[in-house]
Every structure is written in structure tokens, then in C-alpha cells.
């Protein structure tokens, strides 16, 4: 049902964008995008500052590899780094290559009965494909927001359309992102266990992204619109002199409205893993508990009574009893 409700919601948002865009272009083309980016920036900064001010006094050592200890015990440098550099490498592998998703397994009860864990690499592959193509597509979209268009953006789109299929030339990333999103959605729906733990928010993000990608694909390949008009609108937004030119197809407003919703929803949702991955204490702290003493920085100052002080207090009595003194 969660999947169904989120699909309905995204469809309603699309319909709102379609009809709202043609009826109230200023609202859907200017006010909502500005509001969305403002919510995004403020919300994201707020969440990061909140996380930055959350105390992480100790290193979390529950990692996947052998800790560095004695020289003759081989340690796993990347899974259980002891130095800052190795931690940076672990972070880079996690952020750029999603190493922890590579460990994805599926648990099944086989005949016996015995529990069997089998590898499932497709989650990792689809996630990698989705995130990288999404980044590439965002980068490609800079051609609408920058004037003059920098050469690297043009090179990126030329590489993307390398095979020169169709008119306008088919972008490979468009195919990859749709396939990856479709896989990620089907994965949640097909497997009963994953479906059980999937929530409204999981499907909503997926349908939002699918809607965004599909509306973009439709605009480029099927129902075309005046692209220089769209650039005019985008340039108006980034130069703070917004205007909605006439003759923009309503499908474009679906695209920009879904994007605005995605961007505004971002700080309040699981999409914040973009910032959160950098702040994961199990990933970003070196495991050097054995070599370095970590003292809780906000330890309450405890009043202690040392042996020296105790001896001083009872000096006479100890002496009278004939017991040995440390300090004679």
C-alpha cells in the first residue's frame, strides 16, 4: 500500500505541475523553485550543523576487518584503519564506490532447514549506476544555468551522446538511470522481505526520481519544447531576474515541479544520506583505541582522594601503628 500511495502522490504532483504550469507559470516556474532551493539550503545546513554538534566521544570499533595490533598479526588496513590516511581511503571507497553495499547479502532458509546467505551484487550495481548517472545528468544540466556554457559541460554531453542514436541524440545516462531506478523499485516490490521493511518514504523518493527522469526523457525525445525558452527561464532564476517566457510546454513544469519537491523534501528525508555518509562514525573514525587514549572531553571533574593525600591525612595514626610510610 505504501508503494501505491506514494505513486498516487507523485502522480497528483505531476498533474498539479502540468495544469498549474500552464495556468500559473510564475508560481510554478519562479516562486516554487526559489522556495525549494531556499528550503534545501537552510534545511541541509541545519541538519549538518545538528549532526556536527552531536557528540561522538569514542571510536566505534565494530568494523569488518582485523584491527591493527601486533606486527605479526596481519591487519585489514582499509576495513579497520588505524591512521588518518587509511580512514580517508575507507571514506573515499564508501562515498565513491559504495563499498558497504557490495556486502549486500540475502538470507534464505534452505532445506535442512539451514540458513543460507548468498551474495546479491545487483543492489550495489544499480545504486552505483543510479548515483553516478544522476551526478552526470546534473552536471550536463549546467548548460541551462551557465552562460557562456563551459567547455567541460559540452564535452560531457558529447560523451553522453557518443553513439549518435536518433534525434535529438540519445544520452546513454538517460537509459542507465531509468534502468537503475526501475531495478531499485522492482527490488522493493518483488522480494517479500524487502517489501515488508519498505516504507512510504522509500517509495516516494523512488517515484519522485522516476517521475523526474521520465518527464525529462519525454521532454527531450518525444514532446519537444523550445529549449532556448527553457534556458531563458533557468538563466532568469540564477541571475535573480526571473521571467517565464511564453511557449514552454506544460510537461516542463512537471519536470521543474517534481525537482522542486525533491529538493525541498531533501533535508527532511532519507535523502540526507548525501551529507550523512560523510558523518558516519563507523566509517569516518580511525580505530586507534589501542594506541591512543581517548578521554571523553566533557567528563565531569571527579573529586579524587589520592594515596598521597590519604597518607598525609592519617600520617600520625599510621606512624603510631608502626606501618611503613611512602613518604617518610
Amino acid at each position: 500500500m505504501a508503494a501505491f500511495y506514494s505513486l498516487i502522490l507523485v502522480l497528483l504532483l505531476s498533474i498539479a505541475g502540468y495544469f498549474g504550469g500552464s495556468a500559473a507559470g510564475t508560481f510554478f516556474g519562479i516562486i516554487i523553485p526559489y522556495a525549494a532551493i531556499a528550503v534545501f539550503l537552510v534545511g541541509l545546513v541545519y541538519r549538518i550543523l545538528l549532526w556536527a554538534n552531536t557528540p561522538v566521544p569514542f571510536r566505534i570499533t565494530a568494523t569488518c576487518g582485523q584491527q591493527k595490533s601486533l606486527p605479526w598479526i596481519q591487519s585489514n588496513r582499509l576495513d579497520n584503519p588505524a591512521s588518518g590516511t587509511a580512514t580517508v581511503i575507507r571514506m573515499a571507497l564508501e562515498v565513491l564506490l559504495f563499498r558497504s553495499l557490495f556486502r549486500n547479502t540475502k538470507a534464505e532458509i534452505k532445506d535442512g532447514p539451514r540458513l543460507v546467505f548468498s551474495e546479491r551484487k545487483f543492489l550495489w550495481l544499480a545504486a552505483l549506476a543510479f548515483h553516478w548517472t544522476f551526478l552526470f545528468i546534473l552536471f550536463r544540466h549546467l548548460r541551462f544555468f551557465l552562460e557562456p556554457v563551459p567547455g567541460c559541460v559540452l564535452i560531457a554531453q558529447e560523451l553522453d551522446g557518443f553513439f549518435q542514436i536518433g534525434t535529438p541524440i540519445l544520452y546513454m545516462t538517460d537509459l542507465i538511470i531509468l534502468a537503475a531506478l526501475a531495478f531499485l523499485l522492482i527490488r522493493r516490490l518483488a522480494d517479500v522481505q524487502i517489501r515488508y521493511i519498505s516504507l512510504f518514504a522509500d517509495y516516494f523518493a523512488l517515484f519522485l526520481l522516476l517521475g523526474l527522469a521520465l518527464s525529462g526523457v519525454v521532454l527531450r525525445y518525444f514532446i519537444k519544447t523550445d529549449i532556448s525558452g527553457i534556458k531563458e527561464l533557468a538563466m532568469g532564476l540564477v541571475t535573480f531576474s526571473p521571467a517565464v517566457p511564453a511557449g514552454i510546454h506544460p510537461i516542463f513544469f512537471i519536470h521543474i515541479f517534481l525537482l522542486s519537491i525533491l529538493v525541498a523534501y531533501f533535508p527532511f528525508s532519507k535523502l540526507m544520506h548525501m551529507g550523512g555518509v560523510f558523518l558516519s562514525p563507523t566509517r569516518n573514525l580511525a580505530n586507534n583505541n589501542r594506541t591512543k587514549r581517548h578521554i571523553n572531553p566533557w567528563n565531569h571533574p571527579v573529586k579524587v582522594h589520592t594515596y598521597e593525600e590519604w597518607e598525609e591525612e592519617f600520617r600520625d595514626k599510621i606512624k603510631a601503628a608502626g606501618l611503613p610510610l611512602e613518604k617518610v
Partner: peptide
């Protein structure tokens, strides 16, 4: 004119 304005390949 438009091609370079909109960054069309």
C-alpha cells in the same frame, strides 16, 4: 545562435 546559447551539441 540558439545552439550555442542553449549549449546544444
Amino acid at each position: 545562435q540558439c545552439h550555442s546559447y542553449a549549449g546544444v551539441q
